[in-house]
Amino acid sequence: MGRSVLKYVRVRDYLRSLVTHELSAGDTIPSERLLCEQFGVSRMTVRQAVDALVVEGLLDREQGRGTFVAPTKVDLEVRLASFGEEMQRRGMEPSSKVLAAEVVAATPDIADALDILPGERVFYLHRVRFADGEPMAIEQSWLSCQLVPGFFDGALPDSIYGELRRRGLELDWGEDTVSATEVDAQDAELLGVPAGRAVLRLARRTFAGETACVYSRSTYRADRYVLWVPLRAPKRPLTPRAGRTSSELTAEPATTEVVG
């Protein structure tokens, strides 16, 4: 068991490198027989390796035609840009299909995310986002009616961020919470993928300074997106100074004298 797992991993990782660094989208991969010979493994082991990359979305298997290198996944950078801006930056043409655009009462979770009270009116926008005509993501967005009065008057804004900036809201920070799930039947249909496929779910709060401007929940196809996260070492943590007595420690912080 252990040995065959290792063999399978070797074939899979060889194919992964081949697909990402030597072949192009649409190319065929080496035949099963060739891979069996090259690695001295059974046909079943090769199939397992290929299956794994099909599931990962690196390969596309077409019935009766063979197995091909899938289009490169879009690296979904966690940055404060909208779907449309990101797609344009990558030379893809963004478009949307609006499923709902209405004013609703904020439920407690939405209110919390927007720093407003439950029941306050919010604009709700539900869209399928396309890149070059292909469905890529589903996006639900909520904005406080009080913050952006008349947001839905006239034509719906193509870009929420764009419209907010026009209104003088300088979006400068936010937070994404990312999870992975299987797509439900309805979202699968909207995304044009089989139900049960993996998707990335992003919940985002977008702020302009101290003002919470947008809360959104997006569902991205995991076969077309990877998440790219820049990392840096944590900042040095702050700790209470040693040697302070507990009576000093309980002194009201607001009266602490600071020298220098």
Binding site: P234, K235, P237, P240, R244, L249, T250, E252, P253
Partner: peptide, 15 residues
Amino acid sequence: AALGGVANIIEIEPC
């Protein structure tokens, strides 16, 4: 103060 004052802090890290 809302975190319970200095006495309650083990460490604080800006993230």
